[in-house]
Simulated assay, not measured.
Amino acid sequence: MGIKSKLGMGAATGALAIALIGGGTFAYFSDTEVNASTFAAGTLDINIQGNDTDNAIIDVNNLKPGDTMLRTFKLNNTGSLDVSKVLLTSSYTVGDTNGNNAGADLGEHIKVKFLVNNDKRTEVVHETTLKKLSSTDVVDRDLLGWILGGENDGLRAGTTDTLTVQFEFVDNGKDQNVFQGDSLKLNWKFDAKQTSGSAK
């Protein structure tokens, strides 16, 4: 056998050995198992059920100073998570038909009282004006804190709280003729906040 044949045979033998060694690295027992896990977030979902036209909390006309309007509405938690707070954001626009308000703000003359009934006794738990309510800081807008006294349970999933509010067009004993024919469009936004996280 010539030198070239010997060299060729040696290279082939070496390649076969490497192939066997390489192939041997896959010759072991194995087992694979796949486990599928899921994370599903709950939902925060509240809605307001008013008693007036178009489900509004209040819809009234022909007001005059001294008039009071008592209204109830339902705060429904239709989500899957408990609610710890409901922050109320209030805003309004005044329609001045006569253009003679001269800087007077009808919202300053509308008093708002949030009420609760304790053993058939009505109690005012928060009182303000529409103007103040619409400019107050966020810490002062916790509706459940006012109505429920900040109780730990808040508004549980699938439950409803009936809330009562009284509006009053305050008669300040002075000339309020500038408000004749005016209107006020009120918007209340209810922002639900979750309870604290917990071990699952």
Rank of each mutant, 00 (worst) to 15 (best):
S37V: 15
T38N: 06
F39V: 14
F39Y: 12
F39R: 05
A40K: 15
A40Q: 15
A40D: 12
T43A: 03
T43Y: 06
T43V: 06
D45Y: 13
I46S: 00
N47I: 04
N47T: 08
Q49G: 11
G50Q: 01
N51F: 08
D52T: 13
D52A: 11
T53C: 08
N55V: 12
A56S: 13
A56Y: 12
I57S: 02
I58W: 07
D59E: 13
V60A: 11
N61S: 15
N62K: 15
L63I: 14
K64A: 14
P65K: 02
P65A: 04
G66M: 14
G66L: 14
G66W: 15
L70H: 13
R71N: 14
T72Q: 13
T72K: 11
F73Q: 00
K74M: 10
K74A: 10
L75R: 02
N77Y: 10
N77C: 08
N77D: 01
T78I: 15
G79E: 04
G79N: 08
G79Y: 14
S80G: 09
L81V: 12
L81M: 15
V83M: 03
S84R: 15
S84N: 14
K85F: 05
V86L: 03
V86R: 04
V86C: 03
L87V: 13
L87E: 02
L87S: 05
L88Q: 08
L88C: 05
S90A: 11
S90M: 10
S91F: 07
T93G: 08
T93M: 10
V94C: 05
V94M: 10
V94Y: 06
G95H: 05
D96N: 07
T97E: 09
N98Y: 11
G99T: 07
G99F: 09
G99L: 03
N100H: 08
N100F: 11
N101K: 14
N101A: 14
A102K: 10
A102D: 11
G103K: 00
A104E: 10
D105A: 01
L106D: 01
E108P: 07
I110R: 00
I110L: 02
I110Y: 02
K111A: 04
K111D: 01
V112T: 07
V112L: 04
F114I: 06
F114V: 07
L115S: 02
V116N: 00
N117I: 13
N117C: 05
N118E: 09
N118M: 10
D119Q: 10
D119C: 06
D119E: 05
R121S: 12
R121F: 10
R121N: 13
T122M: 01
E123F: 08
V124R: 01
V124G: 00
V125M: 03
V125A: 01
H126I: 04
H126M: 05
E127A: 06
E127R: 12
E127S: 12
T128A: 02
T128H: 04
T128V: 09
T128G: 01
T128W: 02
T128L: 02
L130S: 03
L130I: 13
